[in-house]
């Protein structure tokens, strides 16, 4: 039972980490708190569902469509909605409030569109739902695949950001947006790119989630909250932080569900979140910036 809980905790945590990485890029680099992030995830989940049940396309191949689509959506949303707000903002605080409110609107629009298109029912499909035995416990193959994909995407992104010049530029903007232009970095372009990559990661997360979880048009908010929790726990803009915090959250949720009470899973999530916000607003791994 312990190993089983541990494994499903890791699967869940891997997904959270993947999803949170996108949000940490969007908030850390683009400085946009995107509250419609969960809706982007759910939209990708529906896309994967349509491709699988309508076109017979398996989700792994579906990623090839979903991720570029998420990237394009992120790029467009930043260009159309966010850059006017960035231009008009007097300071960081007013941009934060404006972007929260604007992405709130986006949240409702996307949720509404999905409700009209797919209804409010629980949706899921069965892909690779075959038992696999690992360390003496059985796990559905799609969950193992989800974990592998989370690792591949997360690892790939990490290498991209730390090993390439282009990734270094993005990280420079995250650390000090005011100084980045001094070394020749176009902050606006970096922000738009980071927002778009965040969109791509949300799409990847959505496809991964659709493989082993049921979802509805209105569950996006839950994913936004969980991604936010992970981002704040890990420290804004900190990829490794997001990875560790995602795994911690996945494990905590699974253990609470297994050993305490499944009805308290969400309460535990929010409890952790509120505690982290109050106790260490800069994240478990971050230092308070002055």
């Amino acid at each position: 039972m312990l190993v089983a809980a541990l494994l499903s905790g890791l699967v869940l945590g891997g997904t959270y980490a993947l999803v949170a990485m996108g949000l940490t890029l969007q908030y850390g680099i683009s400085r946009i708190m995107n509250l419609a992030y969960g809706e982007m995830i759910i939209a990708a989940a529906f896309l994967a569902y349509v491709m699988f049940s309508g076109l017979g396309l398996n989700p792994v191949a579906g990623l090839l469509i979903a991720v570029p689509a998420g990237f394009a959506l992120g790029y467009a949303v930043y260009g159309v909605m966010m850059s006017p707000l960035v231009k008009r903002a007097r300071d960081k605080a007013s941009l934060e409030i404006d972007s929260i409110l604007a992405t709130f609107g986006l949240l409702f629009v996307m949720q509404g569109v999905m409700l009209v298109a797919f209804g409010a029912n629980f949706t899921s499909y069965s892909y690779l739902n075959d038992p696999v035995t690992i360390f003496g416990t059985t796990l559905a193959a799609n969950r193992v695949l989800a974990l592998v994909m989370a690792v591949v995407f997360g690892g790939g992104l990490y290498l991209l950001l730390t090993r390439t010049l282009w990734g270094t530029a993005l990280r420079a903007v995250a650390v000090n947006p005011a100084a980045a232009p001094l070394v020749g970095i176009d902050v606006n372009r970096a922000a738009r790119l980071a927002f778009a990559i965040g969109g791509g990661l949300a799409a990847a997360g959505g496809v991964v989630i659709s493989m082993y979880q049921t979802f509805t048009a209105t569950t996006g908010v839950v994913f936004t909250m969980k991604a936010l929790i992970v981002v704040i726990m890990g420290g804004v803009g900190n990829l490794i932080g997001a990875l560790s915090a995602g795994l911690i959250l996945g494990l905590v949720e699974t253990f609470v569900a297994t050993y305490v009470d499944p009805g308290l899973t969400l309460a535990a999530t929010y409890g952790i979140f509120l505690a982290v916000l109050l106790w260490r607003p800069a994240g478990l791994f971050g230092r308070v910036a002055r």
Binding site: F104, G105, F108, M110, V116
Partner: peptide
């Protein structure tokens, strides 16, 4: 909710 979002 679409219209709520657009008003927002």
């Amino acid at each position: 909710s679409i219209i709520l979002g657009l008003v927002f």
